[in-house]
Design a protein around this nucleic acid. Sequence first.
RNA 1: GCCGCGGUAGCUCAGUGGUAGAGCGCGUCAUUGGUAAUGACGAGGCCGAGAGUUCAAUUCUCUCUCGUGGCACCA
Length: 671
Amino acid sequence: MTELLKISLPDGSVREMEPGSTPGDVAAAIGPGLAKAALAARVNGEVRDLGRPFEGDSELALITSKDEDDALELARHDFAHVLAEAVQALYPGTQITFGPATDDGFYYDVMAPANREPFSSEDLPAIEEKMRAIIKADKPLVREAWSREQLINKWEAEGEAFKAEWAKELPEDEELTVYWSGNPNEDGSWLDMCRGPHLPSTGKLDPQAFKLMRVAGAYWRGDQNNAQLTRIYGTGWLNKKQLNQHLMRLEEAAKRDHRKLGREMDLFHLSDVAHGSVFWHPKGYRIWRELEGYMRRKMDGGGYREIKTPQVMDARQWEQSGHWGKYRENMFVIPDEVPNTEDDGPVISGEADWMALKPMNCPAHVLVFKQGITSYRDLPIRLGEMGCCHRNEPHGALHGLMRVRQFTQDDAHIFCTENQVVEEVRKFCEMADAVYQDFGFKYEIKLATRPEQRFGSDEDWDKAEQELRDAVAEAGMATEEFGWEELPGEGAFYAPKLEWHLTDAIGRTWQVGTIQSDRVLPERLDATYIGEDGGKHRPVMLHRAIFGSYERFIGILIEHYAGRLPVWLSPVQAVVAPIVSDIDGYAENVEATLTAAGLRVKSDLRNEKINYKVREHSLAKVPHILVVGKREEEEGKVTMRTLGEKDQRVLTLDEAVAFLNAEATPPDMRA
RNA sequence: GCCGCGGUAGCUCAGUGGUAGAGCGCGUCAUUGGUAAUGACGAGGCCGAGAGUUCAAUUCUCUCUCGUGGCACCA
């Protein structure tokens, strides 16, 4: 007699099952409701198909749509398979490659048949319809184990070059699994190589819970030397309600787009005469100036000293720093020569020395550090700069304010002894925390460790990584609450880095702040200090920024606040709007009084109705509208209407000044 | 840089092988109106740049350029 398998369930109970039975059998044994609701199973912690037999005594947790994370992952993966099946059904000869779940859905990379153009968004409705048909057909998803050879033969016979290439690279001894959509080897059944797991059948998907979003180019295996495939993106959910919520979130994000708001609020513009660089308008630059003032106070208070270094430096300097060899592709290089302009275009002799616009500030800061002789008693030395840098980014990478070719960092470099590193990094963690809180951001801290290609010894990397870990721990931030985790291999070539990832008001994340502990550049540029022993020592150099760049940070703020900036950052803090032109004089007095109190106020004397003015300034996201009419003039008051609020308040001028001043005070200067 | 899509008035966009249209905005005039659009009239365009096809190109083709969604990149 065979022994029964002991299957323990999350409630602690144990069921005995025949050998060869499956999680699906357990579900059925428990009850028909569960059998229907079950989507997959967690067996000994691993997500598996319901129909895959147990291999011994096991711990089992059945997954239903209530286990949302697991269920979404499964559903999205299945949507991707259904997508591939639909594309091949509609367009025979299409090669399939790879199709995973993503954060909000799925994609599949395919290669259109040779006799046809790559797929375009016009093909999506037909593919969606076919996908719905496959889901409605409720085809079983059947797992089979195949030999590697069998699979390679199949892919080669069917002209699936990519799949065949992939199968060949899988380890020979690994069990390869395939999934049938439909009964194996039956007409109309479809097969993909896949590790699984999958839902029991396509009918477990909600045909109204997905939408194909777009097509895009993507390289086979992410390598730009390989063939370019068509990636079909979809968003996929468990039900229609979730899908609609997601589509609404996308709409909300589009409404907040900083490029749209930047134009509507007249903050900046971008132009093809300087693509990748920003033309800041008066209102946008006001935001910049407020941020700059804020950051200066933070830096001054933190013992930093601000410097200003050259925009253009000789190539030899970049050679020595290592940038010339490694990053020249991204540098704007210029000859140290006045070009001959007698011919059609400027002519360069080719004999001039090369110079380059700085792509970063660090080498210049080292040069400042190296002036004179530094004693260990002077350390740490913290040099800050609102450093304007240029990087010749790949054109496809440019995006509004978020990725530009000219940008200004809130940069600083801290030169210190090895013993001071942890303390300096800890202080920085606290400064960053205070700053992000002032803007209402939640954030996570990550440690990006050594990449494969790097400068410096393993010993130094060990030390540098450990210092960063220790500092975060000392700041009390190496915890789940701060999203603390390590990102192996993500560090810069010269140093590991801590990264601050902000989460904005609608849940998107942005990497802005960073601190990097660098022993390479001080070595290459020969920075030294005199130690207690009278000998020369290498300082450690900490590269750090909190905003990252002003351009990007302002872009993030615009989207975070959906344009409704806090009063202290608002370019115009209040508009005085008279109801009738008889009141214009009083309106101007009010404007003058508030302006004298240091507020940014404009009066709107245009011959327009008050409704019109209210609407316009509301759309322009002015925080407060001060309406004045006969009553207000007689009483020496204003009626204040605040953006986003229904109530109005009648205030005396003194009260209005006090109220607005309180809001206009930067958060770091409030009592 | 690669793939897809796009570039028409300040903005959002429609349209056509015979050199153009709407709404908003802008200007003028009338209107002086209590909290999200008062009305009338008017001005405004090398239809992204270059080349080709054509009697004729904003429209078709090619190249370039910029933007855009991805990919790759992000020191």
